[in-house]
Design a protein around this nucleic acid. Structure first.
Lengths: 132, 132
DNA sequence: GTAATTGCAAAGCATTTGCAGTAAG
DNA sequence: CTTACTGCAAATGCTTTGCAATTAC
């Protein structure tokens, strides 16, 4: 991956800056709403393209969580997540995952194991209040 | 299967039977292709509706994995999965997850933690062969 | 100057839903 | 008989893409 390919456009800068400001893990659409306050004419497609770019260059990460929409994390640091089973909200969770060295694990049909993560399911405070 | 309002239609029966035959974790569309060999006139919507029903009554489970499509598991037994980062293929993985009692875990903004799982990322044998 | 990037709109997928007809119990 | 369920098709929701205009460098 080349280091000097990308251009730091105003849109890319604001997308990154706003994502870094918050520790929720917004969907593209949620971030679009935030970014639009500063750049009213930005398009949702541009938000998606910049998120994709920033993931590719390792500035941010895409959460590998279940749910109908992709969620993004302004950091590239390794940590776990709790997901609300009712509303999909995601929060950070400090938890050390102890696994055998991944390269030594053998699974039939797989050549190599490259990563592992724990995901927690919970009920967030807001959803817990609602009668179901 | 429980004795309650649900009706065991031919479509529901075949969807369940075919899903139980295989240990891959098909998407709704993949299962649709299989079921169609026995019931050529079944609709994809019916496959979706029956999968949803079977998950609701606890006969099967929906994988809480990342990826663009939902995947289903013919069993309700607890085990972990490896997902191919290139093609999305999922395989079973026997791995005991050791975590503190979930009810005792405290996360800010969450009332309770109800479940946890490990997901492994790998490269499946088929994808490993291809030049990238 | 020129190629990466943008806004817009349309296309692509996976999934859900409304409806009138069908079939399970 | 009753009403859950079906096939069909249209709708929905999220994400990607084609294109001409714009902009970073």
């Amino acid at each position: 991956m080349k280091a000097h390919e990308g251009r730091m456009t105003r849109q890319r800068f604001v997308v990154l800056e706003e994502l870094r400001k918050i520790d929720t893990h917004p969907t593209a659409d949620e971030l679009y709403a935030i970014v639009r306050k500063r750049l009213p004419r930005i398009s949702l497609g541009t938000v998606y393209r910049n998120l994709e770019y920033l993931v590719a260059v390792g500035e941010i990460s895409r959460l590998e969580s279940a749910g109908s929409s992709m969620r993004f994390d302004g950091t590239a640091s390794k940590h776990q997540h709790v997901r609300c089973v009712r509303c999909g909200r995601i929060a950070d969770f400090v938890y050390s995952l102890v696994v055998p060295p991944l390269r030594e694990m053998k699974v039939e049909g797989f050549d190599e194991i490259v990563d592992a993560r724990v995901e927690f399911d919970g009920v967030c405070s807001q959803c817990a209040l609602q009668t179901v």
